Computed example of a mutant assay.
Amino acid sequence: MTKVLILYYSAYGHLETMAEAVAEGARATGAEATIRRVPELVPEEIARKSGMRLDQAASIATVDELADYDAIVVGTGTRFGRISSQMASFLDQAGGLWARDALVGKVGAAFTSTASQHGGQETTLFSILTNLLHFGMTIVGLDYGFKSQLGVDDVRGGSPYGPTTIAGADGSRAVHEEEQAAARHLGRRVAQTAAKLAAPKLEGSSA
């Protein structure tokens, strides 16, 4: 069975919702999908005063467990057009995995959230994907088979580089159903791609 890890950081719950949708999409293919989050770096007192969501159900990931999966989908909110310090700190600890090629050939993908429609979604996705490419992973994006990302009738996230959501300046906007659908689409694509890459080669085949 294909094993997919959805690894995320979510300060206010938007990326938590997106992570659950990615997992739903992966599970729809028969894959095993596990949701983990990275540790919070903000002191608890400050986090509570800021209204950050501290009661998320997902357990905290360990760096070493990344090697146990066939695919890893990484999600984090933008911080001035790049990934959050929480996710950056976690990935920076994966040097040992990089040194022994532990993630080479695995499938990788990304999703993110910003406060506004032009708040750095694509640069944040590229920031995530750059990390995954350095690990030697095979990248899957949000292909244009998901036609809803072409719509302009409503405010929505999404790009060919990965699903996104728009939280609003005060974080009050809920994740749009179309944004969740995009995340489910990515989850399916990632699981399907990982299954194909893991398929045993036919005897005598040079492929």
Rank of each mutant, 00 (worst) to 15 (best):
W98F: 11
E40P: 04
F111D: 00
Y144Q: 09
T62D: 13
A167V: 05
P43Q: 05
G25D: 04
Q117A: 15
D64Q: 08
L15C: 06
G168I: 11
A57I: 00
Q180R: 15
A207D: 12
H134R: 14
G51Y: 01
E65I: 01
A183V: 07
A174F: 03
G25P: 05
S148L: 15
T2G: 06
H185A: 15
T17A: 12
E203D: 13
K201V: 11
A102I: 08
G51C: 08
F90E: 00
Y144H: 14
F80V: 07
A58Q: 09
V73R: 02
R173V: 05
A169S: 12
D170C: 12
T29F: 02
F111C: 05
V155F: 15
T62G: 14
Y69W: 09
G96K: 11
M137D: 05
T114E: 09
G171M: 10
H118S: 14
P39W: 02
D153S: 13
Y8G: 02
M52E: 07
P160I: 06
F90S: 03
L41I: 11
V4D: 00
R36S: 03
L150H: 10
G51H: 06
Q121T: 03
L132V: 01
A71C: 09
G105Q: 04
L142W: 02
K201H: 14
R173T: 00
L54Q: 10
A207H: 12
V73N: 04
A99N: 12
I139D: 10
A11Q: 09
S89W: 00
F111G: 03
T29S: 10
A195W: 07
L97R: 04
L66I: 03
Q86G: 12
T62H: 06
S205F: 09
R82T: 14
I60K: 08
D101F: 10
V104W: 03
G13F: 14
E203Y: 12
V175L: 11
A99M: 15
G77P: 12
G108F: 05
I128K: 04
S85L: 07
D101S: 14
L186D: 04
W98I: 09
T2A: 01
A199C: 08
Y69G: 04
G51M: 05
H14V: 01
L66T: 10
A58H: 11
S85C: 14
Y12A: 07
T34K: 03
S50I: 00
A181D: 10
T165E: 04
S159G: 10
Q117E: 13
A115G: 05
L91R: 07
P160S: 13
E16W: 12
F135S: 00
I35P: 02
F90N: 00
A199T: 05
T29P: 05
Y8N: 03
G158K: 01
D55W: 08
G105P: 06
T138G: 06
T2C: 06
E179Q: 03
R189M: 15
A109W: 10
F126I: 14
F90C: 08
H14E: 01
I60A: 12
I139H: 01
V140A: 08
L132Q: 07
I128C: 01
A11R: 08
A109G: 09
R82C: 01
I72F: 07
G158A: 10
Q121L: 13
F135Y: 09
G141K: 00
D153R: 15
Q149D: 00
A195G: 10
V74Y: 04
P200D: 06
S205T: 12
L103Q: 04
D68P: 02
L91Q: 09
A19V: 01
T62Y: 10
S159F: 01
A33Y: 02
I166S: 03
G119P: 07
